[in-house]
Amino acid sequence: MTELHSTSVGPPVAHHFEDFEQEHEANMLGMWAFLATEVLFFGAVFVAFYIYRSAYADIFKEASRHLYMSIGAINTVVLLTSSLTVALAVHAGEHKARRLMVGLMVATLVLGLAFLGFKAFEYYLDYQEHLVPAFNFAWEGANPAQTQLFFVFYFIMTLVHALHMIIGISVLARMIWQARRGSYDQDSTAVELFGLYWHFVDIVWIFLFPTLYLLRQ
């Protein structure tokens, strides 16, 4: 910012910025600030969950055993892999490798859809086992109310996460379209921003997985 001379070559800069660096950094920081907001957004429901988990430890553990850990684990692999592909796509974008970038973005999209597919399948299994609160919840064991509370949080947390996935995938689909036309050849900031968002959604899952699936002992 101390440098006032904007470069005449390089990507176009929005009217209110001095130069590309300033615009790029503002965009990146803006995304980071947004992610800080998201941390607190998810954080609130995590706090609520852990309050009840500490109050009803045994009940929540028992409830956790009714989730499909295998599906959760597979989905973790899927999501971590998609994080890798996004990171590589950002890398490709910075090195102006358009085709590689598009390919990696498509891979990310496919992995994201796969995650949602697995998740939907898991929801279906949960439904069959009468584990969906307010719709068909039925619990043979003790403490149905508290057990239901576990599943309430399970559904709220995973659904809000899935909503973030859906938003990400929608944005990604549009970006792939743009990228094919070369919109990010000069300036791949948008891909970087998307990458940050996608990694964050991944991080949420990194915490959701043990929180919901693994704390069963």
Binding site: I59, F137, A142, P144
Partner: peptide, 14 residues
């Protein structure tokens, strides 16, 4: 309106 049922056995947490 709890969804209580006559709870029977139970998890009996360890």
């Amino acid at each position: 309106s709890g969804n209580g049922n006559s709870g029977t056995q139970g998890s009996g947490g360890q």
